[in-house]
Every structure is written in C-alpha cells, then in structure tokens.
Amino acid sequence: MINENVSIALVHYPAMDREGKLIVTSFTTMDLHDIARPARAYDVRKFYIVQPIDAQRLVIKRQIDYWLSEEGRRSNPTRYEIVQLVSLKYTLDEVVEDVEREKGKRPIIVGTDARKYPNTVGYEELSREIARREREYLLVFGTGYGLPPDMMRTFDYILEPVYGAGDWNHLSVRNAVAIILDRLFSRNRC
C-alpha cells in the first residue's frame, strides 16, 4: 500500500447546520461508495465513518456487512474490495485511538474546510511531508456545513480550501475527498 501512513475520516458529528448550530448529519449511501472508491484509488490505509447515532450506524453496518459477505463479493467484487477499507466509529477520538493502536503513534490530524485558518497548509507541502513516511496522517472531512471552528482549531493542520476556477466552493464532501486525494497523491499532477 503506497499511502499506508494516511487514513481519512468522514465526521457526521459534530457538524454544523447553515446557522452554525451543532448537529448530527445523516449518513448517505453515496458517501460510503463514493469516498471508499478514491480512498482505494489513492491507496490510503483506511476510511473511517464517524456516526454516533445507533439507528444510522445500523444502516451503515448493514451495507458494510452485505458488501463484505460472499453474496456481495460475488455480486460486485470491486465494491467488496473498497468496502474492506471502511471502519465505523462513534467519535473522532475513537478514530485517533484506532490509528494509534494499529500504527503505534498518534496521527497528525489534518482538517479540511472551505475556510482558511491560521494553521493552513498547502497541498504541495503536505504531500511532501506525507511522502517522507515518517508520521501517520488522518485527513478529516466534515458533513453538513462543515466541522465547528472550535474543533478545527484543535487539529495539527488545516488543508487549504479546494479552490476552483471561480469563487464558488460549495462542493459535496464526496467531490472534495476525491479532489483532495488527487491533489495530494496523483501520479499525474501538473
């Protein structure tokens, strides 16, 4: 695995609504497949889904279990392969603990957001740092209207926003994950 020192996490809580209030966002089935695919394509170690609501977790677990079953594997072998990367956790703290337990050290936590923060890092700089393979990295993606600013300030780095050709930057998390992983790890970067 090329990027065995990188994991990604999709966080459903805490998230913000459009007024900035804390909420728990709902899981969408597209997120499972459309984030696991680029995670596999860019060869990251694991894709964590953070969801604290048991009813939502049941839906996620049923999907994971189906695609990891013999029937799911026969039905769609590539989906079986990508879903093997997925791990369901209650909290981001559990994710950090899991990485630390499996890799023997606490990961550098890199938040993603459409806003800039004082500890913002560029793609090229982060890509070079990851490529040295000296540390573990956890890229954290928010849902809804993003992760709360108080939480963002606790991260080691914040990756610079995804800027398109114009000033509009309201991408789905699925699009943002794919773009960010491509900017960090693509073999055909400009």
Rank of each mutant, 00 (worst) to 15 (best):
P148V: 00
N76T: 03
R18V: 02
V44A: 02
R153A: 11
S7F: 01
T143F: 10
L32T: 08
N5G: 09
L58Q: 11
P38Q: 08
Y123A: 01
G146Q: 07
S26H: 07
S7C: 06
E125I: 04
V44M: 02
M30E: 13
D167C: 01
Y157R: 07
E160Q: 15
P38F: 11
P77F: 13
N188M: 14
I180G: 13
L68T: 07
P118S: 08
S172M: 06
E70F: 10
P38Y: 12
V110S: 02
I64W: 14
A114F: 11
A9F: 05
G72W: 12
L88V: 07
D182T: 03
F185G: 07
R37P: 00
N175A: 15
Y48S: 05
C190V: 03
D98P: 10
R79N: 14
A9I: 02
N119A: 07
I35A: 13
A36W: 13
Y123Q: 02
A39S: 15
A165V: 12
N169G: 03
G142A: 02
I158M: 15
D34M: 13
R62P: 04
I8E: 06
T29K: 14
I158R: 12
G20T: 07
N76I: 02
I82F: 04
Y90R: 15
I8K: 08
W168C: 05
D93C: 02
P149K: 11
R45A: 08
R74I: 10
G144E: 01
V96K: 08
F27W: 13
E136P: 07
D54I: 12
E19L: 01
R183L: 13
G104Q: 03
A41P: 01
V44S: 09
L92T: 01
E102D: 12
Y48R: 10
R79T: 14
E125L: 03
I35Q: 12
Y137I: 09
G122I: 00
A178Y: 13
E70A: 13
R174S: 05
T112C: 06
C190G: 15
V177G: 10
L147S: 01
R74V: 05
A36R: 10
R153G: 11
R106N: 05
F155Q: 06
R57H: 02
R132G: 06
V121P: 02
D150V: 04
R187A: 15
A36P: 15
V86L: 11
A39L: 12
P14S: 06
I8D: 12
K103G: 00
E19Q: 07
L92H: 04
A39M: 11
Y13K: 08
N188I: 10
E70V: 11
A165C: 00
Y157T: 04
V59E: 11
Y123K: 04
K61R: 15
T78I: 14
E81Q: 15
I180N: 14
L126P: 04
F185S: 12
R115N: 08
Y145N: 05
F47E: 05
V96H: 10
E97K: 15
R40G: 09
V83W: 12
I109L: 05
G122M: 02
H170F: 08
K21Y: 09
A131I: 00
I2P: 05
S172D: 08
R62N: 15
C190L: 14
F27V: 09
L85M: 14
D156Q: 12
I2W: 05
E100M: 09
L139D: 09
Y145M: 03
R101W: 03
T154W: 06
E100I: 00
R57T: 00
V140M: 06
R183A: 08
